[in-house]
């Protein structure tokens, strides 16, 4: 398989201070890695470092065999796209305006969209199931629709790697499932590699090929979903007791 994004003993953090140590990620095309861990454990910090918006405190991130620090902005933008939790509320931007920002790395000085750009946008909107939202104002649609529009934006950037930071956190269950199903389709059809942090461990279990657990400033080695989602491990990771786990996950 094609190795696309990997790290070597990466420490991630802010202004030289490591928040999280020993991040070893090895992502291949068409694969989904999920980061799970308690709030504030440093999932977002890792993701920001992986997408180059935060410099590595120690160690390196490699994108297609090249050190991320040496990858040019324009090239990075054509390889990697993002979907974050943080709500954006741009005023008077239509969904079409928002989505077409994804074509930024491909357009000229004034950002004029070519016929090809428009085709890619249409295709992305179809994949993200937002075809009918193009003319609506972004701040007037529901949270679930917003996340799908932002996903369409990420898709039309034609990325090889998609980085998502808790993309489902604000959504109700229907929209959570819709978003993740679109994601799975994207991985299957376009062979995109995905790193996604998720709060909902039951969803992480369903979609992830590898799972990285993060706790106490340490990123554990990636394991298969089957190895991670066992009672002892989940209890240890989220500091819940076994009775709580059973109450939540064992049937009636």
């Amino acid at each position: 398989m094609d190795r696309i994004l990997y790290t070597e003993n990466l420490d991630a953090g802010y202004s030289g201070q490591a928040v999280i140590r020993n991040v070893n990620i090895d992502l291949h095309k068409g694969e989904i890695i999920s980061l799970i861990g308690p709030n504030g454990s440093g999932k977002s910090t890792i993701l920001k470092t992986l997408c180059g918006q935060l410099p590595a405190v120690r160690g390196n991130v490699f994108l297609k065999g090249k050190n991320l620090a040496d990858v040019k902005e324009a090239e990075l933008a054509k390889t990697m796209s993002l979907l974050m939790t943080g709500k954006v509320d741009p005023e008077l931007m239509t969904c079409m305006d928002v989505i077409s920002i994804g074509r930024y790395p491909y357009t000229g000085l004034m950002g004029k969209l070519s016929e090809y750009d428009r085709d890619v946008i249409r295709e992305s909107m179809r994949m993200a199931n937002v075809e009918d939202l193009g003319d609506r104002y972004f701040d007037q649609i529901s949270d679930g629709q917003k996340q799908r529009v932002l996903l369409a934006r990420a898709i039309c950037q034609e990325p090889e790697v998609l980085i998502m930071d808790e993309p489902t956190s604000f959504l109700d269950i229907k929209h959570k499932l819709e978003l993740l199903q679109i994601l799975l389709k994207l991985v299957k059809e376009k062979n995109v590699a995905v790193i996604v942090s998720l709060h909902e461990i039951e969803l992480a279990e369903k979609i992830a090929d590898q799972v990285v657990c993060i706790r106490d400033g340490i990123a554990e080695p990636a394991r298969s979903a089957g190895d991670v989602f066992v009672r002892e491990n989940i209890c240890r990771l989220f500091e819940i007791n076994e009775a709580q786990y059973d109450w939540l996950y064992k049937g009636k």
Binding site: C51, Q53, E73, A74, L76, A77, M80, S81, L82, M84, G86, V88, P90, M93, D97, V98, I101, G102, Y104, P105, T107, L109, M110, G111, R153, Q157
Partner: peptide
């Protein structure tokens, strides 16, 4: 105009599409 339109979507997305 072009980077400005990306910037309207916030820092993170602007940086992601290649705005310095």
């Amino acid at each position: 105009s072009k980077p400005m339109s990306a910037y309207q979507l916030g820092d993170t997305y602007a940086a992601n599409v290649g705005v310095n």
